[in-house]
Nucleic acid binder design. Structure first.
Lengths: 357, 357
DNA sequence: GCTAGCACTCAATTTAAGAGAGTGCTAAAG
DNA sequence: CTTTAGCACTCTCTTAAATTGAGTGCTAGC
C-alpha cells in the first residue's frame, strides 16, 4: 500500500489546512489552494482512497476530511520536512535567555517560559536527571532528635533536600564528620556511580571496623536513594491551551488540566520521550498510555551537556499543532540550552577538569 | 438605615439560595422554602427595599435577585453564624494528615491539597515567612570561580538556596570557615534579627581587623537579603474552579487561571489577609486590587507556631461559595496545622529550648 | 401592613426554514 | 483507465419567529 506522490500531496494539504483552521478540509479547498492542478472531483476520489487506507476521516457525511492519528503519524514521519528556525526567531529566543542568572533552576524555568511563549502552547522541561550529573557536596543537619536533613548539591548547582528519620540519634558534630568524609570520598563522582562507590567502600576493611564510617555510608545510601529516584518537571503556560478553539468545552478541558496537576503522568510521558538518539520526538496522545492526554501531543527534544543527555524539554499542545513551526523552535531551544550549559561548567562524565580547591 | 429582623431573613434567604443554585432567586422561592410565613408579594416588597439599599440586584427586569458585593459583605459580617466543623469532617481531615512525613514542605503541600479537596475549590498555602523562624544552619559551596551557592536552613526545616556572584574568588576552605563562624554566631537566632546581628557584629572590633570575618559577614548579608525577601505560595486544585458553572466561559476562565500563574499577585493578596488578629478573613475579589481576580473570593486563616504567625492558608473560589461550609473547614485546618507544627519542634520566638548539640 | 391577582417583561427554549459546505455517484470527455 | 463536470443528497449551522415560564411591579381589597 504505497502512496503515490500525488496522494501524499493531498494528505499534506488536508493536514496543513486542518492545522491552520481546525476545521475539516473539503475537496474544493484542496484543489484550489494547494497547487495541484486537478479538479475537486479528482481530489474527492483521492480522499476517498486515503480514507480507505485509514489516513483520513470524516466527522460526518458531508463534512470535509480531517487526518486520523495514523495519517498524522505518516505525515510527521515521512512527509513533513523540517526546516531550520528563521534567523529572526533565533535572535528573539537568544534574547529571551539573556538575563542569564547562572542559576540552573532559574535557567530551566526560563526555558519552559520561552517554549510556552514562542509556541503559544504549554512548555515543559524535565529537570536534569541527577544521575547525569556529578557530585559536589553533601551536608547533614540535625533538625531534632533522630531527624536529619540531608542537602545534596550536584556540581551543576542543583540542590536537593530530604528529611530522613534515623533510628538512632546522631550529634551534629558526628554528622559534620560524616559529611567531611563523604565529601572527600565522593568528590566529583558521577552521581550515577555514587551508590556503587558507597557499596564498594562499605565492604572495604578500613570501614568495616570503623563504626563512624559505616554509619556515614549507611546514611548516605538512604539519602542518595531518595534523591536519585526523584524526578521533577516544570510546566509553564498551561493556560495557553485554553486558547485553542477545540478546547472550548470546559468539562473536557478541566479533565486535561487536572491531569497536568499530577505531574507524575507528565514525567512518565517525558521519560518515554527521552531518546538520546533522536533530535526530536513527537508523541501523539493516543500513542501514550496516559488517558487524560489523549487529545494532546508532545513535541520534545533532549538537552545535553557535552555528550550526556541531561533531560528533555518540549511543548504540549493539541494534536493539531503547527508542527512545522513548533519543531524548529523546540530543537533550537534544546540546542541553545545545551550550549548554555556546556560552556563554563564542566559537569559531564568523561570530561571532568576537576577544579582546584 | 437599619435592617429589621425580617429583612435580614430575606437577605439571608436570597444569598443562600443564590449560593446553592448560582441562579437569581425569586420571591416565590423565598416565601416557600425559607419558612417566613408571608406571601411572595410581601417578599417582593422587601426585596425592592433591599435593592434600594444596594444589597440586592437584578441581572435584568423580571429575573430574581442576586446579592451585590455590599449585600454579601453584610451577610458575611453580621448575618452568617459560623458553626464549628462537624466532628465527622474533623476526623476525615485529621486522617488526611496522617501520613505525617515530618517534612515541613511536604506538610504544607498536603495542607493545600486537603483544602482544595474538602472545599472543592483551589487551596492555597503561603509558605512560612522565614522571618518568623529561627536560624539553623548556613552552608556555602563554591560552584565555580566567583560563584557561590548558599544554602540556608531554618530550624523548622525550610531549605532555601541562592546562587551569588561574588567579585572575588573564595576557596572552598575559606567558605567552610565562614560557615562555621556564622553557624556559631547565629545559632538559634530569630531570622528576623539576623541582619541586625550581622550589622552589629560587623562593627565590633574583633571583626574590623579580620579580613576573613568581615568577608563572611558581607557574604551572609547578601545571602540573607535574597532569602528573607522571597515569598512562596503553593496552590492546589485550581482546576476545581472550572467546575463552577459561572466559569463556563472559557475566555474568562483563561484570564483568571493565567492570573494564577503569576504567583506574585496571589502572594500580594494573601499578604493582605495576614492579620493575626482575626481567625478568619474573607476578601471579596472586588475588594482586592487584583483585577483578574475580581470575580473570586478568598477565605483565609493564619497558621501559627505558638503565638507566632507563620503564614496564611485559605481557599480561593467564586464569590458564590458555600461560606458556611468552607469557613469552618479553613479555620479548622489552620488550627490543625498550627497544632501539628507546635508539637515537637520548638522554633518560635520567645519559647526556644535550644537543643543540645 | 399584608395579600391576591393581573398585566407585563425578558431570557431561555423550541421550532422551522434556509443557507452553505461538502460528498458520492454517474456519465461523458480525454 | 483517468479525469472532470454536473447533480442530487446529506448534514450542520445560522437565523428568525413563536412559545414558554419565571419573576416582577402595581393596584385594589382585606
Amino acid at each position: 500500500m504505497e502512496l503515490r506522490e500525488r496522494d501524499q500531496k493531498v494528505l499534506e494539504a488536508v493536514i496543513s489546512g486542518y492545522i491552520r483552521s481546525g476545521e475539516p478540509v473539503g475537496s474544493r479547498t484542496v484543489s484550489k489552494h494547494y497547487g495541484l492542478n486537478v479538479s475537486s472531483a479528482t481530489i474527492r476520489n483521492i480522499m476517498a482512497d486515503l480514507e480507505d487506507m485509514g489516513l483520513l476521516q470524516q466527522p460526518h457525511t458531508s463534512a470535509g476530511r480531517i487526518p486520523t492519528d495514523k495519517g498524522l503519524r505518516l505525515y510527521l514521519d515521512s512527509i513533513l520536512k523540517i526546516r531550520e528556525l528563521e534567523k529572526q526567531q533565533q535572535v528573539l529566543i537568544r534574547k529571551a535567555f539573556e538575563s542569564n542568572k547562572n542559576d540552573l533552576e532559574e535557567l530551566l524555568r526560563r526555558t519552559s517560559q520561552v517554549l510556552s511563549q514562542f509556541c503559544k502552547q504549554a512548555g515543559v522541561v524535565l529537570w536534569p536527571r541527577l544521575t547525569a550529573t556529578r557530585f559536589k557536596h553533601i551536608e547533614f543537619v540535625r533538625l531534632r532528635p533522630r531527624q536529619i536533613l540531608v542537602v545534596l548539591i550536584s556540581k551543576s548547582g542543583l540542590v536537593q533536600h530530604t528529611i530522613l528519620d534515623w533510628e538512632e540519634d546522631i550529634t551534629q558534630d558526628d554528622l559534620d564528620k560524616y559529611a567531611r568524609y563523604l565529601n572527600e570520598l565522593l568528590e566529583d563522582a558521577p552521581l550515577a556511580e555514587v551508590k556503587d562507590r558507597i557499596l564498594r567502600e562499605m565492604e572495604s576493611e578500613k570501614v568495616l571496623f570503623d563504626q563512624l564510617f559505616s554509619q556515614a555510608l549507611a546514611l548516605s545510601e538512604r539519602a542518595f536513594q531518595e534523591a536519585l529516584d526523584s524526578a521533577e518537571v516544570h510546566i509553564e503556560g498551561q493556560m495557553q491551551l485554553l486558547r485553542n478553539p477545540e478546547f472550548a468545552d470546559v468539562e473536557r478541558m478541566r479533565r486535561i488540566l487536572e491531569a497536568f496537576e499530577d505531574k507524575t503522568r507528565i514525567i512518565r510521558l517525558l521519560d518515554k520521550a527521552l531518546d538520546p538518539q533522536r533530535q526530536v520526538q513527537i508523541v501523539l496522545g493516543t500513542e501514550s498510555d496516559v488517558n487524560e492526554l489523549q487529545e494532546l501531543s508532545l513535541v520534545s527534544s533532549p538537552y545535553k551537556r557535552g555528550e550526556t543527555v541531561l533531560g528533555v524539554l518540549g511543548v504540549i499542545g493539541p494534536m493539531r499543532m503547527d508542527y512545522s513551526r513548533i519543531i524548529p523552535i523546540v530543537t533550537f531551544t534544546a540546542a541553545l540550552l545545551s550550549q548554555l550549559l556546556a560552556d563554563p561548567k564542566e559537569d559531564m562524565a568523561g570530561q571532568g577538569h576537576p577544579e582546584p580547591r
